[in-house]
C-alpha cells in the first residue's frame, strides 16, 4: 500500500527485540516504532514470541489475544471493537478493528 510498509529501518536487527510502545497500562495494543517483519523477535510483557506478520511502523499490534467484539484500548481509551479474533503480536488495523462511531472509508469510495 505505501512505501513505509515494506521499508526496514537500517538499524533494525533480527536478534534484538522490536521497539514497541505501550501508551497506557490499560491498553491491549502496542505501537511498533519501526516496521516489524514476520519472524522478528517480539517481547510482550516479558514473554518472547516470533512476529506472526508484517506490522508497518507506527501501526498497532495485539498485546493480548483479542476476542471478536472485544474493545480495543489505546491511550487507555476505547478506539473501537475487534471484528474477529486477533492473536497476540498480530497487526491490528482496518481488517480486524471497527469504529464504534462512524465507519472508516477508503480512497475508492466517494461522497456521491
Amino acid at each position: 500500500m505505501t512505501e513505509a510498509k515494506t521499508r526496514r529501518a537500517p538499524e533494525a536487527r533480527a536478534d534484538e527485540p522490536a521497539r514497541l510502545i505501550l501508551l497506557d497500562a490499560a491498553d491491549n495494543v502496542l505501537i511498533a516504532v519501526r516496521a516489524v517483519a514476520p519472524g522478528d523477535l517480539l517481547v510482550i510483557d516479558g514473554a518472547a514470541l516470533a512476529a506472526p506478520e508484517n506490522v508497518p511502523a507506527g501501526h498497532k499490534l495485539a498485546r493480548t489475544d483479542l476476542r471478536a467484539g472485544e474493545k480495543v484500548l489505546k491511550y487507555g481509551a476505547p478506539i473501537g471493537a475487534a471484528t474477529r479474533a486477533v492473536a497476540r503480536g498480530a497487526h491490528v488495523h482496518t481488517h480486524n478493528l471497527r469504529s464504534d462511531y462512524i465507519a472508516t472509508h477508503s480512497r475508492e469510495e466517494d461522497a456521491t
Binding site: 500500500m1 505505501t2 513505509a4 505501537i31 508497518p56 511502523a57 507506527g58 501501526h59 498497532k60 489505546k74 481509551a77 476505547p78 478506539i79 473501537g80 491490528v92 488495523h93 482496518t94 478493528l97 471497527r98 469504529s99 464504534d100 462511531y101 462512524i102 472508516t104 477508503s106
Partner: peptide, 10 residues
C-alpha cells in the same frame, strides 16, 4: 489509515 490509524476515535 495508511499511517496506522484505524478508527476516528483513535
Amino acid at each position: 489509515a495508511e499511517g496506522g490509524l484505524t478508527t476516528i476515535e483513535e
